[in-house]
C-alpha cells in the first residue's frame, strides 16, 4: 500500500522533538489507549499484519498528526467493528447494545502470560532458501494494494544478503488472513545506492525482507 505510513526517506521533515523522552507514557490518555488496545487485540487471534494494515488505513491526516497509541486504539476499535464485536451505533451513542456478542475479556493473568511469552513467527518450510549470504539481490520495482513490508525507498534497489533468518510468516499474506511462511533475509544496501545525495557514503541500510520481494541481481 502506497500510504503515508511508508515514511522512510521522505523529505521535508524537520528536527526531531525530544520532549518527554524519558517517560514511559506521555499522558494518562496515552497509557489508557495503549492498555485498551493490547487488551482488545488478544480477544481474537488477529494476525499482527492485519493490525498493522488497519492502522495504515487511518485517514492520512490523522495518521500524521494523532498520538501514536491513540492511533493504536482507533485501530483496535476499527478491527472490532470490522469483525462484528462492536457496532458503529454503539460508538456513536456510547451505549452498549445488548444484542451484540459479549466475548470473555483478557484477564490480568492473561496479561502476565503475554508479558513473559515471546511470540514466535518462525515456521518450518519444505523449500530450501533461494539465496545465500553474499548473494546480490534486487528488490521488487513496485508495491501492491494491501499490506507489505518492503518500504518504497528500497524498491528497485540492489543489495547483498547478509543473513538468512529462517522462514517467517509472510506479512502480505498475513494481512489477508493467510498464514504462509517464506524465507526471510537481512539485506544490506549502500545508503548511496538508495539516496543520490549519499553517493560514496560508507553507511549501510539493513532491511529484513521476504524471499518473494527479491530476485537475483
Amino acid at each position: 500500500m502506497d500510504g503515508v505510513h511508508d515514511l522512510g526517506g521522505k523529505e521535508g521533515f524537520g528536527p526531531i522533538d525530544r520532549a518527554g523522552e524519558d517517560e514511559a507514557y506521555h499522558t494518562e490518555a496515552d497509557a489508557r489507549a495503549y492498555a485498551l488496545c493490547v487488551s482488545m487485540r488478544a480477544e481474537r487471534a488477529y494476525p499482527v499484519d492485519w493490525f498493522r494494515h488497519v492502522r495504515e488505513n487511518i485517514d492520512p491526516v490523522d495518521y500524521l498528526t494523532r498520538p501514536y497509541f491513540d492511533q493504536w486504539l482507533q485501530t483496535a476499535v476499527a478491527m472490532a467493528i470490522d469483525a462484528g464485536d462492536l457496532s458503529m451505533v454503539e460508538v456513536a451513542t456510547g451505549k452498549s447494545d445488548s444484542l451484540a456478542r459479549t466475548p470473555v475479556p483478557m484477564s490480568p493473568a492473561d496479561v502476565r502470560a503475554m508479558l513473559t511469552t515471546p511470540a514466535n513467527f518462525e515456521r518450518e518450510v519444505a523449500e530450501s532458501p533461494a539465496f545465500a549470504v553474499g548473494d546480490r539481490v534486487g528488490t521488487a520495482s513496485h508495491g501492491h494494494p494491501g499490506h507489505t513490508r518492503l518500504p518504497a525507498y528500497a524498491r528497485a534497489a540492489t543489495g547483498e544478503i547478509v543473513a538468512h533468518r529462517g522462514a517467517h510468516l509472510m506479512p502480505d499474506d498475513g494481512a489477508r488472513g493467510i498464514h504462509r511462511p517464506e524465507h526471510l533475509y537481512t539485506v544490506a544496501f549502500a545508503r548511496g545506492d538508495l539516496f543520490p545525495e549519499a553517493a560514496g557514503s560508507p553507511d549501510r541500510i539493513h532491511l529484513d525482507l521476504w524471499e518473494s520481494y527479491l530476485a537475483r541481481a
Binding site: 487488551s39 464485536d85 452498549s96 451484540a100 466475548p103 475479556p105 484477564s107 490480568p108
Partner: peptide
Amino acid sequence: KGLVDPAA
C-alpha cells in the same frame, strides 16, 4: 460492553 476488563 465487556470487551475489556479494567483490571487487565
